[in-house]
Simulated assay, not measured.
Amino acid sequence: MKKILVVLTNTTRYHGTNDATGLWLSEATEFVDEVTKAGFQVDYVSPQGGFVPLDPRSMKYTSGRDLQIYESKDFQQRALMNSLKPSDIDPKNYQAIYYTGGHGVMWDFPDSNDLQLITQKIYQQNGFVTSVCHGIAGLLNVRVDDQYLIRDKKVTGFTTAEEILAGKKKVVPFLNQQVATEHGAKFQKKRAYKEYAVKDGRLITGQNPFSARAVANLLLKNI
C-alpha cells in the first residue's frame, strides 16, 4: 500500500493570548482528497499525538468535499481525535510526508526533533518532503548531511506580506519567510493568497491555504 504521512498541530491558541488557533482545515482535507483519489493511504501524526484542534477561522472556508472529509468518521477519529505520535511512525512505510499549516504549527513544528528525524529518513530513502503555508515551519530546522534541507532549494510558504494581511505578524514567534531565507533557502512567492506551489527535487512547498491541492498535484505528478 502506498502511504503518505500527514503532519498536524496540537497547538490550541496563539501563545500569550486567549485567541484560538490550530489546524487550517482545508490544508489537510484538500491534500488528502487529492492523494486518496490517486490511490494513496494517509496516516496522521502530530508532535504529541492525540487531539488536533481546528483554527476556527478556517471553518469559514470549508464546504463541499472539504466538509465531507471533515465529517467522515475516519478523519474525525484518526486525524482530529487520535493522531499518531512520532514514536508510532516507521518512516520506511511512507513515500512522502506532508506538513499542514494553521498558525498553531509555528509553536510545535519547528523544534520537534522526532518529526525532524522522520522527515530526514523519508527524504534519505528517496521520499518526498512537502508542506503548505505555515507548514514550512516544520521544514526550517530539518537537516540532511549536516546542512539544512532547505538550503539552496527553491521553497515557498506563508509570506511576511500575508502575515501582515492576516493581522498576526506581531503575534507569531517568527516569520517563516525570514527564517527560511536565513537558513539558505531560495524563497519564492507570488501575489498574496494566490495559489502557488514550487518543486525543487523531492521538496515541494505551497505558499498559502489556497495551495494545498497544487502541492498534492505536483507530488502526484512526480512520486
Rank of each mutant, 00 (worst) to 15 (best):
Y99W: 02
F75G: 03
N126E: 15
K37M: 08
Q41R: 13
F75E: 00
Y98C: 09
G49V: 08
D74C: 02
K37I: 06
I89F: 04
G102M: 06
G49Q: 08
G104A: 12
R65N: 03
M59L: 15
F40G: 01
V42Y: 13
R65H: 10
D90Y: 02
H103I: 07
S112M: 01
D55F: 05
H103G: 10
G64Q: 00
K60C: 03
P110V: 12
N126D: 15
G50W: 14
Y44H: 05
I69W: 07
G104P: 08
I122E: 11
S83C: 12
I118W: 01
P53D: 02
K85C: 10
G127L: 07
N82K: 13
S63K: 14
A96Q: 06
D55N: 05
D74T: 13
V52D: 00
F75K: 04
F40V: 11
Q125W: 03
L54E: 00
N93M: 04
N113Q: 15
M81C: 08
V52C: 13
I122Y: 00
T100Q: 02
Q120Y: 08
Q68K: 14
R78H: 12
M81P: 01
V42F: 10
Q41N: 11
M81L: 15
L117E: 14
A79R: 05
T130Y: 06
F40E: 04
G39L: 11
F109G: 04
Q125I: 12
F128P: 10
G39E: 01
M106I: 04
Q95M: 11
Q41C: 00
G102A: 04
A96T: 05
G101H: 08
K121N: 05
G104M: 04
Y99D: 04
V129C: 05
I118C: 01
I69R: 10
Q48R: 14
G104Q: 03
S46E: 09
N93A: 14
D55T: 00
I89L: 04
K73L: 01
W107C: 07
Q125K: 14
Y123S: 08
L84K: 15
M59P: 02
V45E: 02
K37Y: 04
R57V: 02
N126C: 09
D111V: 09
D90C: 06
I118G: 01
Q120H: 12
K121Q: 15
K73Y: 07
P86N: 09
F128T: 05
L84M: 13
I122F: 10
A79C: 12
F128C: 00
D55G: 01
S72T: 07
Q124Y: 00
F75D: 05
D88N: 14
R65Q: 12
V129D: 11
Q120R: 15
D66N: 15
D43L: 07
Q77T: 15
G127K: 10
Y123D: 03
L84N: 05
S131F: 09
F51T: 00
P110S: 12
Q125L: 06
T119C: 01
Q77N: 14
V129F: 10
P110W: 13
L54P: 01
D111F: 15
Q48I: 04
G127F: 11
S131M: 10
Q95L: 14
N82E: 07
K85N: 04
M81T: 00
K37W: 04
M106E: 03
M81Q: 15
S58N: 07
T130R: 06
Q116T: 03
